[in-house]
């Protein structure tokens, strides 16, 4: 990443352009964000399951709290590079982007970050509706939890983006590479804490499933904010970040050579 220094100076400009682009298509963006309501569907199931008494140490309020934070973290850590890379590689649209004086991946990362303020704004009405439905879910996280949450959610953002980038780069080698992403997404939904708090997994599996990369991209920051996980979880996220970054770099350097060899 020799161009990283240069990328750093260009960051503000990219962000301004990307943000303007988002605002231009705001209706579309709002619909995309509203489509991420699966945590609410999951909440409905768990809420009904906890009607007769708490499930594990989750009562109805804890479930509502868990899936509200889930919704917000998912929104903040959202990326779309897997679709963009897949499309750009297969259609040859990657070629003009390679001519720019900046790595296309870094460019997309800046764009993804630029979407952050907008994405967090759109989720406000959803959270407000949830608060209206169940006011008890409002809570004040402790200072240590809050201090750990900030790096944890930032790490989740980076890990989620890197994972998508890696799956996107599979298009260098496979024609139907989006199938891999669908498979990963199905596993991630279950093992990342998207569908269910991981503490409710069968007892022997809880510790093991939290070591997997899925947890680092979603469940970890949720548990950290709710005071259910500590700083060691953030440490695990750092380890995954390093591993994913190394893998992404390897895929890029190998893939880009192959891309050139195809004759594009």
């Amino acid at each position: 990443m020799e161009g990283l220094g240069r990328a750093f100076t260009a960051f503000p400009a990219i962000q301004r352009v990307a943000f303007a682009g988002l605002v231009a298509y705001r209706a579309e963006m709002i619909i995309w964000v509203l489509s991420a309501t699966l945590p609410l569907v999951m909440l409905a199931l768990w809420n009904a399951a906890a009607a007769g008494g708490p499930v594990g140490d989750y009562g109805q309020v804890e479930f509502a709290r868990y899936f509200t934070v889930n919704l917000v973290v998912r929104q903040i850590t959202g990326a779309w590079i897997v679709w963009e890379l897949n499309w750009a590689i297969r259609k040859g649209e990657l070629s003009p982007r390679l001519l720019r004086p900046m790595n296309p991946l870094v460019f997309n990362f800046a764009e993804t970050m630029a979407a952050l303020p907008f994405r967090s704004m759109v989720v406000v009405p959803l959270v407000a509706a949830l608060l209206l439905w169940r006011p008890e879910i409002a809570f004040r996280p402790g200072v240590p939890a809050l201090l750990a949450f900030v790096p944890s959610v930032a790490l989740a953002f980076a890990c989620a983006w890197l994972t998508q980038a890696i799956f996107g780069m599979f298009a260098f080698w496979f024609e139907q590479s989006m199938g891999f992403w669908t498979a990963y997404f199905a596993l991630w939904s279950l093992c990342g804490g998207y569908f269910v708090p991981l503490d409710l997994f069968p007892e022997g599996f809880v510790g093991a499933v939290k070591l997997l990369p899925f947890y680092a991209t979603l469940g970890a920051p949720i548990d950290v904010l709710l005071g259910r996980a500590g700083i060691e979880t953030v440490g695990l996220q750092v380890a995954w970040l390093l591993a994913l970054a190394a893998l992404a770099r390897l895929c890029w350097s190998r893939g880009i050579r192959r891309y050139g060899a195809v004759g594009a």
């Binding site: 999951m42 399951a49 594990g56 669908t182 199905a186 569908f195 269910v196």
Partner: peptide
């Protein structure tokens, strides 16, 4: 095919977890 089977498993999986508790 593989994707379809996985999608089906993804829909059923939360049920297994819920009914393990209640």
């Amino acid at each position: 095919m593989a994707v379809g089977v996985l999608a089906a498993a993804g829909v059923a999986a939360p049920l297994f977890l819920v009914y393990a508790h209640v």
